[in-house]
Amino acid sequence: MSVTAGNSNLVPIGDIPALVIPALGETLIMVGITMTIVVLVGIPLGALIHNLARGGLFENRAAHTTLSWIVSIGRSLPFLILMASIIPFTRLITGTNIGIAAAVVPMSIAGIAFFTRIVENSLRSVPPSFVRVAKASGGSPLQIIATAQLSEAIPSLIGGLTINIIAMIEYSAIAGTIGAGGIGYVAVTYGYQRFDNTVMVATIVILVITVALVQLTGDALVRMTTPHSATAARSRRRLAAAIS
């Protein structure tokens, strides 16, 4: 559909940056605060669930099943439903149910559930022999989790974190529909409700660029933290230098 000249609600092209850039800032703040909470809670929670499982450091079937169920419930609700259903809780914590603060609560809950599973999955891919090595070397449970589990899983955790951040950018757009602000809010109110295709395209471009940057940064960090690929890259450069 082409833009109709008679639509007086359209934002002039010159004004689009002034509309979209602060909105991007809001999105980044929302995702930034959420991800901080998600990492701070998700890593210990994921490590705890991993070690409550059979063969873990604190094997406990009942506790593992309970926590696992709670996380699964968090994972299974569609975000829109989760957000709506916990409004009383959100209001209790933040005193409001609109704006950035209100969006951070449901986003954190969904994000924690998401990231906890990612942490568990990353820890599962670390060879269990490392835990035996750490135990035999005299490590305490916390030292073992830090050195033989999380540290070895760092590249995989960063990869998971990248996926999680991108999912949170998407969730922030959904949160935008209930007035949380941010790029999603602009896309919905201008692009969707007012048929302002120029604003719609601008938000899409900005989201694509943001997501691509997050992904590229994540991939680079994964490479940097994996000794195997880091040295491989160095030797490739050396080879290239030798040939030229």
């Binding site: 005299g138 050195t147 033989a148 540290s151 070895e152 760092i154 195997h228």
Partner: peptide, 16 residues
């Protein structure tokens, strides 16, 4: 455990 040193099968070194 510190009085006993263990050499594991070759997969025992931390990769990072």
């Amino acid at each position: 455990r510190r009085t006993i040193g263990t050499v594991f099968q070759s997969d025992g070194l931390f990769s990072r």
